[in-house]
Design a protein around this nucleic acid. Structure first.
Length: 852
RNA sequence: GGGCGGUUAGCUCAGUUGGCUAGAGCGCGUCUUUGACGUAGACGAGGUCAUAGGUUCGAAUCCUAUACCGCCCACCA
């Protein structure tokens, strides 16, 4: 293969990925002497396409995996696919709807099979996209969330919770979406601020008492009045003290309900009297439990009023019922007023339907003991969080966590392995024969629960399910996922991990923020501002997307996507490509018959120093999850050091073996960040063997520090000369002269080459003329004609002024006795040194000015 | 109501335990057919680090308050 003039990612990426996959490089080594390093990929929706957030996730995880693989660890990156219960179900149900069918036309098993084939058709897409992003994951260990081993483990956990009495079947208020016909966990409900109305309604006392004939309550949902079973006042409320125990007439009905005393009633709010509708309000439900009140359901699962609401209201939607109730109240002169309010209302996160709290029998996990254990390990710092602040956020969440409803009324998911006695609704048994609708046990007939598990109940067990074949990889090394999943996923993995395995599921948690659109807005299909990662890949290359995504991004912070960063990254890839092209060219034209790497020129020690420093720093940054800084660092090495100085210098020196060696090191260090271009180069270079992905992380060079420092001085000298060349009036370049300066003398050619000076002769001191530059301890002259020198005077004066200011600053600092005594010695010493140097420079510049 | 985060160059953002002249990319200006790269090279301009106090020899960094902007959680009827 030859190097083309520009790097065309599309031409190489698919082949390179195939090469890696075929070679088995993605499989973890089984070397017992090496540490395992494990990352479980958060399983993308098997049915969906990847979004830009996946691009970020995979970039971060793959950087870690490739780095640790090169460090010689047994790196294992485990891919997954999520059946995404509710998400996929919504998509499928829409499809059914389009075909004029509903879920009720089929049995659960039929539906399950249909969705299975539907997902199976789509699944390849997602996996291809993961490949396009360069994920070096072990495909042979891909786990689908409905694989038998997942279901087995989930059933085992359910049974263990059952036996430990941490699972119970309870009739409680659940968050119900009447459109999707399923319940949700609390965390899945989206709360939105809404404008509403607060109506004041009078409930007449059966027997007037203590000067009252009626009590006025406030409500935002008058239609639920039909299900009221009490009204409550605060026990400390003196106004109503004597009324507690009295009965009021429930408007629009024939019922009479009691006045009770409960803390829930807020004396400050409205009249201080609150209606209690236990079957349709979480607080009221709790009040009813305390006071043993009846619960009357007046809204059905279809979102319409039911028979309990009375024949006037039955079958009306809640909206219609509200209007009718208000009209009736008005007619009966029981409406006492209305005020507009803003309040938070729960909505279905998928279809935005208002969530209806309804009484329903469901399976609940008693989370308290699980949460307590999780809180303990978190407080002990056993799991490190990036960003660190997420730890306390999670602890606070776990402290107030309520019991977890794990039943979902959708067919697409893991069936709950529980059966109920057809003759005794309290008699539930655990059995995994979920494909049978009815089973017989001990002569009794049991009917299966048709519900499925909440997806997070199975995902919450992901780390130990996916690593079960190689237990040495559990606990996993790091859980990298989106910050939005802290509660619903990370928290549950910790709780369930501790409960089932007695171990933490992962040692570190790294949470990335959301990738916003270029304007900083959240991406959404409805806004039409979604960026497709695969489009970016085809336009700029996978490496460019990765580097662009990690740039300027820190843990947990939402940040805009930036095309300019992607382009800058694409340019870097092209730069490395061209560096390699040149190096290959030099190697071809300057063959050597050995492979001994020798440092022969100043800049060679310097580049070795720079590579070593970058290597050391890079490792530190990756290990601390500072990806953006790591990306910057390697960019800086390649572009500003390797290409701009070393390669430019090597055009003169042509140290073939060193060029080979340093290029290899640079490619290795860049590889975790830009795997495709670096591997493509590795495969194209004439002398490299094997695959870059499987190379060892580079070892530091030995070099001469003095020589490296000398070259750093040359860089300053050359930069200084270039800068002056630009600011000297006119565009002419003039000879650079010096006298008695070994560094200058030894590097005349280099200086000439890099400054494009016409010549760099050594002269006698008395012949020195023109512009005098004093850089470090070097006296350099730019031999400009006298008239131009005159014009240049103001420039010199400016520099003198600036230098004077710098000196004053340093002097002030050193004059302060506190600084001298309290600041670290080295720092003070450095300040002194710097002051002396600057003073010398100033003197030189002043004498220079006098000469003009 | 509770909690978390942000405010640094024209734009998007870095800046780890306080320490030398506060950085990057893009953008901007001037110059450049150099043995690879114009997706390039050289040079340069641009910041009172939101505001006000405080701690300190020293603050973008720590503390307090204020303003504005985001996000998350929450049953206010």
């Amino acid at each position: 293969m030859k190097f083309s003039k520009t790097y065309e990612p599309n031409q190489y990426e698919p082949d390179v990925y195939a090469l890696w996959e075929k070679s088995g490089a993605f499989k973890p080594k089984q070397d017992k002497d090496k540490d395992p390093y494990t990352i479980v990929m958060p399983p993308p929706n098997a049915n969906g396409n990847l979004h830009i957030g996946h691009g970020l996730t995979i970039a971060l995880q793959d950087i870690l995996i490739r780095y640790h693989r090169m460090k010689g660890e047994n790196a294992w990156y485990i891919p997954g696919a999520d059946h995404a219960g509710f998400e996929t179900w919504v998509v499928y149900e829409r499809k059914l709807e389009a075909e004029g069918k509903t879920r009720f036309d089929f049995t659960r098993d039929d539906l399950y099979n249909q969705v299975w084939s539907f997902v199976y058709e789509q699944r390849g897409n997602m996996e291809l996209q993961i490949r396009a992003l360069g994920a070096s994951c072990d495909w042979s260990s891909l786990t689908f969330t409905l694989d038998p081993k997942v279901i087995d483990t989930v059933y085992g956990t359910f049974k263990k919770l059952w036996d430990d009495k941490l699972i119970y079947r309870g009739e409680k208020l659940v968050n119900f979406c009447t459109k999707h016909q399923t319940a949700f966990a609390d965390i899945e409900v989206t709360h939105k601020e809404e404008q509403g109305t607060l109506w004041q309604i009078a409930y007449p006392l059966v027997e007037p008492k203590a000067g009252y004939t009626e009590l006025v309550v406030s409500t935002t949902r008058p239609e639920t009045l039909l299900g009221d079973t009490a009204i409550a006042v605060n026990p400390k409320d003196k106004r109503y003290k004597d009324l507690v125990g009295s009965m009021v007439k429930l408007p629009l009905t024939e019922r009479e309900i009691p006045v009770i005393a409960d803390e829930h009633a807020d004396m400050e709010y409205g009249t201080g009297v609150v209606k209690i509708t236990p079957a349709h309000d979480q607080n009221d439900f709790e009040v009813a439990q305390r006071h043993d009140l009846p619960m009357i359901t007046v809204i059905g699962f279809d979102g319409k009023m039911n028979a309990n609401a009375g024949f006037n209201y039955e079958n009306l939607t809640t909206k219609q019922a509200r209007i009718k109730v208000l009209e009736a109240l008005k007619t009966q002169e029981l409406l006492r007023g209305e005020t507009p309010i803003t309040h938070a209302v729960g909505h279905c996160y998928k279809c935005d339907t208002r969530i209806e709290p309804l009484l329903k029998e469901q399976w609940f996990v008693d989370v308290k003991p699980l949460a307590e254990r999780a809180i303990k390990v978190l407080e002990e710092g056993k799991i490190k969080f990036h960003p660190a602040s997420k730890k306390n956020v999670l602890i606070n969440y776990l402290k107030q966590l309520k019991d977890w409803n794990i039943s979902r009324q959708i067919p697409w998911g893991i069936p709950i392995p529980a059966f109920v006695n057809v003759d005794d609704p309290k008699d539930w048994i655990y059995d995994t024969r979920v494909s049978e609708e009815e089973i017989k046990v001990n002569g009794k007939t049991y009917r299966r629960d048709n519900d499925t598990f909440d997806t997070w109940f199975s995902s919450g067990q992901w780390p130990y399910i996916t690593t079960s074949d190689r237990p040495e990889h559990y606990p996993t090394s790091v859980m990298e996922t989106g910050a939005d999943l802290l509660f619903q996923w990370v928290g549950r993995m910790i709780m369930l991990g501790l409960y089932v395995t007695d171990e933490i599921p992962f040692k570190d948690v790294y949470m990335h923020g959301m990738v916003l659109d270029e304007k900083g807005q959240k991406m959404s299909k409805s806004k039409g501002n979604v960026i497709n990662p695969i489009e970016i890949v085809s336009k700029y290359g996978s490496d460019a997307l990765r580097l662009g995504l990690i740039a300027s991004r820190s843990a947990g912070v939402n940040q805009a996507f930036s095309t300019s960063k992607v382009m800058a990254s694409r340019n870097l890839c092209n730069k490395v490509w061209n560096i390699s092209r040149l190096v290959q060219d030099i190697v071809d034209n300057n063959p050597v018959d050995n492979d001994k790497v020798e440092l022969k020129n100043l800049g060679e020690d310097w580049i070795c120093e720079q590579i070593n420093q970058t290597n050391k720093q890079l490792q530190k940054l990756i290990e601390h999850y500072r990806f953006a800084e790591a990306g910057d660092l390697i960019y800086d090495l390649i572009w500003n050091k390797y290409a701009d100085w070393f390669i430019e210098s090597e055009k003169l020196w042509k140290n073939t073996n060193l060029l080979k060696s340093t290029l290899e090191q640079v490619l290795k260090m860049l590889h975790p960040f830009a795997p495709f271009v670096t591997e493509t180069i590795w495969q194209t270079l004439s002398w490299t063997e094997g695959m870059l992905i499987a190379q060892e992380w580079p070892k530091p060079y030995e070099y001469d520090q003095q020589k490296a420092d000398d070259y750093a001085e040359l860089i300053d000298i050359i930069s200084n000369i270039r800068s002056h060349y630009q600011s000297i009036p006119g565009s002419g370049k003039y000879p650079i002269t010096f006298h008695d300066d070994p560094l200058m003398y030894d590097n005349q050619l280099l200086i000439q080459h890099l400054t494009k000076a016409p010549c760099v002769p050594k002269i006698n001191l008395e012949d020195a003329k023109g512009l005098h530059l004093a850089i470090h301890n070097h006296n350099v002259y730019i031999d400009i004609p006298k008239d131009i020198h005159e014009k240049y005077k103001s420039n010199l004066e400016e520099r003198i002024l600036k230098m004077g200011q710098e000196i004053t600053t340093l002097e002030k600092r050193l004059d302060s006795p506190n600084y001298v005594t309290k600041a670290p010695k080295e720092l003070v010493e450095e300040t002194r040194k710097s002051l002396t140097e600057k003073k010398e420079l100033l003197a030189k510049m002043k004498s220079e000015l006098e000469l003009i």
